[in-house]
Design a protein around this nucleic acid. Structure first.
Length: 308
DNA sequence: AAGATTGTTGCTTA
DNA sequence: TTAAGCAACAATCT
């Protein structure tokens, strides 16, 4: 679920909540979600803090600040913690100021229990909490993931540079220029849906926003990339930035799982035009129903009349 | 109760 | 070389 706007929403939240806080200990309840040796992972993080958080596409990048103590004896070089939320990952922070049902974010029954006053334990890990960062200040950061596709990994500066090479141009980033955008259509005969989903070509878009962008642009997801007119490409270019910026403004889309770092839902779902609207009347032409097909291996919603 | 579900990787096939 | 297609990852929902 988390695409660029959702990951950006988490980034903005965590930047306020955890930057500068010392990591006292880390509970690795599901160690396989850590893609380092556990020693390496803990060694890089324990006792340290984060300078700040950045992002490339849907990947979060935490810059690790070594405390004086470990910095003096450990190998030099900047390390980074990478976190990918994949389909159902969540990063939720909880402390005295932000009481949330930390790990219970996915569980309706637990939320109801809390609503009824049957439990008052806010900062408790939940069924899908796999990693917990405990900060010296008392706050906790929960990494929850129902499907366990997400991961955490500590990398060096050089490893990060290599990883970044795999990301294409990104809406709202400096590299998202009209010139660069035109370039990605050259010699590509794949359909436009698959092209826009390809992170190596454009990073940050996922199934929801690709369907929304193509609908807003009046382009059928079936169209071969190299068959688009300049006018159509221009619309996709502009709508990519417009829709992504708007989705960030509304804190992302919560379709089923997504929660921000405060444990709250994003409100862009109300603004979706086609995703999840199959069978409903097209909001543009109001004459036929939104159709759902399988394309590029994904559920794809579009209006066959408005998107040609 | 089989099939689908937001993301990505890596394998197979063309 | 390149790319398209698909299974796999795990759990839940319809």
């Amino acid at each position: 679920m988390p695409e660029l706007p959702e990951v950006e929403t988490v980034r903005l939240g965590l930047a306020e909540q955890i930057v500068g806080k010392k990591i006292k200990n880390i509970e690795l309840l599901k160690p396989k979600l850590v893609k380092n040796s556990l020693g390496e992972f803990l060694d890089a993080l324990l006792g340290n803090s984060f300078f700040g958080i950045s992002r490339v596409g849907k990947l979060l990048i935490f810059k690790i600040k070594r405390s004086q103590k470990t910095g003096a004896k450990k190998k030099t070089g900047q390390n980074f913690l990478l976190v990918h939320l994949k389909m159902t990952g969540q990063l939720i922070y909880c402390d005295q100021k932000n009481f949330v049902l930390g790990g219970h974010a996915n569980s309706k029954s637990e939320r109801e229990k809390f609503a009824k006053g049957e439990t008052s334990d806010f900062c408790q890990k939940g069924k899908y909490t796999h990693i917990i960062f405990n900060f010296a200040s008392g706050g906790k950061l929960f990494f929850n993931d129902l499907r366990q596709f997400g991961y955490l990994k500590v990398v060096s500066e050089n490893e990060l540079l290599d990883i970044k090479k795999n990301f294409g141009i990104e809406p709202l980033a400096d590299n998202f220029t009209w010139q660069n955008f035109l370039q990605i259509f050259k010699n590509r005969k794949t359909n436009i849906k698959a092209l826009l989903l390809n992170q190596k070509i454009i990073s940050g878009l996922g199934n929801i926003y690709v369907d929304e962008i193509l609908f807003a642009s009046g382009v059928s997801p079936y169209r071969a990339a190299n068959s688009l007119t300049e006018k159509e490409k221009k619309k996709i270019f502009e709508n990519s930035e417009k829709i992504i910026a708007r989705a960030i403004k509304y804190g992302g889309t919560t379709f089923s799982n997504f929660l921000n770092s405060e444990g709250k839902r994003g409100s862009f779902k109300k603004r979706l035009k086609v995703y999840g609207k199959e069978g409903e009347l097209c909001p543009k032409c109001k004459s036929i129903k939104i159709k759902k097909v399988k394309l590029a291996g994904r559920g794809t919603r579009f209006c066959p009349k408005c998107q040609v």
